[in-house]
């Protein structure tokens, strides 16, 4: 039972991490319909930016996180403005944009490896604290992962529902044609979601840096799991991305309670397979054709 409780907490923690990744990726995907594969290396770049800020510039962790968010936002907007937007204007199909995104993925990942080297990076001297509640262990970084997910998702939810920009994003997500008709500049909205979505990815990136360190190839798993979380939860739904991420984390953790751990990489996919078969619209999505 102790093991189950610990696995449950692990699932919650990792699920929160996946959920936050999913929220950022999902916001971009739902609004722009771009499968932003390069979300992965931007996530990596954010982790390295945080490392740079904390280790080289000597900023405190919170400031490093903000610095990383700013860098990620800038990279995201540049990517949209100079890669995706020309493709959209050039009438390229979404497939073509996907492959262009893949091209950028390759470029960024290798660029990061050249600039920062291939070894791992950690913030020197950083030590997180460990808590023990009953039989359950967790660290301050893990706590941070859960809190970050809850707070940021809530903030984003409020922002989308209450502010003028947020409503414009929702309108564009709902129906870009209609949004244009009622006078929303959808390009501006897209730029905005790329900024927000990318900045969001910087938070889990920094937390992973604190937890495990950064490596140039950490982005692939991040974008992969974000994509899956969004699909499991349902495209276009904030709640869905959160639920999808948490579900993945839980399944991955609790699923291995009795199953040998060599199946770790596929267990979430077996569940995913079933979810999509039984509920093709995702857990929280609307049925779309």
């Amino acid at each position: 039972m102790d093991l189950f409780a610990q696995l449950f907490v692990n699932g919650l923690v990792n699920g929160s991490h996946y959920a936050l990744l999913g929220v950022g990726f999902g916001l971009i995907f739902a609004t722009t319909r771009i499968l932003h594969f390069a979300y992965g290396p931007i996530f990596t770049a954010a982790a390295y930016a945080a490392w740079f800020a904390a280790n080289v510039l000597g900023l405190p962790i919170a400031a490093a996180m903000l610095f990383a968010a700013a860098i990620a936002a800038v990279l995201g907007v540049i990517t949209y403005q100079y890669l995706y937007l020309p493709f959209e204007r050039g009438q390229g199909s979404s497939h073509v944009t996907l492959i262009a995104s893949l091209g950028l993925f390759i470029v960024l990942e290798n660029l990061i490896a050249i600039i920062f080297g291939t070894g791992g990076r950690v913030i020197d001297g950083y030590q997180y604290s460990i808590f023990l509640i009953g039989p359950i262990y967790f660290s301050s970084v893990q706590l941070g992962q859960v809190i970050a997910m809850v707070v940021l998702t809530a903030l984003l939810g409020v922002y989308l529902a209450r502010t003028r920009h947020g409503k414009a994003i929702l309108a564009t997500t709902d129906n870009p044609e209609m949004a244009r008709i009622i006078g929303i500049d959808t390009v501006k909205v897209s730029r905005l979601v790329f900024a927000i979505g990318s900045a969001l990815s910087a938070i889990p990136a920094t937390l992973i840096l604190l937890k495990d360190g950064a490596s140039p190839s950490m982005g692939f798993f991040a974008v992969f799991i974000a994509f899956v979380a969004v699909i499991v939860g349902g495209v276009g739904s904030l709640r869905g991305a959160v639920a999808g991420g948490l579900a993945l984390g839980m399944v991955e953790s609790l699923g291995l309670w009795k199953i040998p751990t060599e199946w770790q990489s596929s267990i979430a996919f077996i569940v995913l397979f079933l979810v999509v078969l039984l509920r093709p619209q995702g857990l929280f999505g609307r049925a779309v054709n």
Binding site: F87, G92, V96, A100, L102, G103, I106, N110
Partner: peptide
């Protein structure tokens, strides 16, 4: 080898830009 991949990625993008 990393630079080769970077060029490769860039060429992929350029080709697709020219021939969407």
């Amino acid at each position: 080898d990393k630079s080769h991949l970077i060029i490769y990625g860039l060429l992929l993008i350029v080709i697709l830009r020219l021939r969407p």
